[in-house]
Design a protein around this nucleic acid. Structure first.
Length: 302
RNA sequence: GGUCCUGUGGCCGAGUGGCUAGGCAAAGCUCUGCAAAAGCUUCUACAGCGGUUCGAAUCCGCUCGGGACCU
């Protein structure tokens, strides 16, 4: 397997790190040095209706280097890690026809994991089944969900995060759609990729990152985030809009909180998100970490 | 000067003699499909001093801090 990787000579540099640390510009510099293109691994920048609030790269940046999985989908679509794996693997193979190296950037840890290691194929769930489960959960609560799974899918229940409704509903929808436990679909087998993966992490002390986050939120507001949020108000229930920067401004538009409160909450929630990202990426021993404030392109390419 | 109200953990906020409210924030964490999501763990406060009581955040007194009204 080691040999196979070396022979292939194809490699992808994956830039990870918390939000607002400067991944985008770093990735663009790297892609320029390598004369290649970028695949985004961001679960929100793929939506064409969302630009300001998800810190989509600027027009100039997008013109400098071709990006993929940016503004490719609509907020009305259900995009997920499985979708991303398929998309990104196909795109990578296509781009490897013309380039020896590629760059991937993004903060969505699960998507990157799906790309690197694969994610087990899961059956497609009829929308009615999902809708019914959500409806029943809203009406009957967590206890109902827990009881259902305890009895109907004990194999899953024994290993489940029993307090996590999202995970419980996922297991239940698979069970109802296929008659089988979600556990039979999970192999947890890592897929082998026919290219080399180099993971690069950007890091910075949290207090410095917080300052950057706060500034970026203020800039987003100046850039017209509120109007962008209004423009997608109709889709606020969609998974794609369960997003920091949008949720809080929906509340403001509803009159539930003041604008100042909404902005403050966006800052806090973005920081919390950044911390969760750090927790996720710090566990990945394959990531090589670099100080985000220092130029490291030459170190990385070696 | 007088009368009355009030003081709960970083913030908000219930409790009103005995059994760690809760929420937010913070810190740590989990993770095979909503992942900018969802969930878990930790954080035992009652302004201070004295008194009553088997037992006080809860009753009484004084002190200090807030607030309202009166002359």
């Amino acid at each position: 397997m080691q040999n196979l990787k070396k022979i292939s000579a194809k490699k992808i540099f994956i830039i990870v790190g918390p939000t607002a640390i400067g991944k985008t510009s770093f990735a663009i510099q790297l892609a320029q040095s390598l004369s290649t293109e970028i695949i985004s691994a961001d679960s929100r920048q793929c939506f064409k209706e969302l630009a300001i609030g998800v810190a989509r790269p600027s027009i100039e940046e997008l013109n400098t280097i071709p990006h993929h999985f940016i503004a490719t989908n609509s907020v009305t679509e259900d995009i997920n890690a499985g979708y991303f794996e398929k998309y990104a693997i196909e795109k990578a193979h296509q781009l490897f026809q013309e380039h020896d190296s590629l760059v991937m950037v993004g903060g969505t840890g699960l998507y990157i994991k799906a790309f690197c290691e694969g994610i087990d194929p899961m059956p497609i769930i009829p929308p009615e089944i999902r809708a019914t489960i959500i409806q029943e959960f809203n009406a009957k609560g967590l206890i109902w969900l827990q009881t259902e799974l305890k009895h109907k899918d004990p194999a899953f229940w024994s290993v489940a995060e029993q307090q996590n409704p999202q995970r419980l509903m996922r297991a239940l929808e698979i069970l109802l759609a296929t008659g089988q436990s979600i556990t039979v679909f999970r192999s947890a087998q890592k897929k082998q990729r026919d290219f080399e993966i180099i993971k690069i992490g950007l890091e910075m002390p949290l207090d410095q990152l917080t300052t950057r986050i706060n500034q970026r939120v203020d800039q987003m507001m100046e850039a017209g985030l509120l109007d962008e949020v209004r423009s997608v108000m109709l889709f606020r229930e969609r998974p794609s809009l369960q997003t920091v920067g949008y949720k809080e401004l929906f509340e403001y538009i509803d009159g539930k909180i003041s604008l100042a409160e909404a902005i403050q909450q966006i800052k806090v929630h973005t920081r919390q998100y950044a911390k969760r990202q750090m927790t996720w990426f710090k566990k990945d021993a394959e990531i090589k970490w670099y100080d985000a404030m220092k130029p490291t392109i030459s170190d990385v390419i070696q």
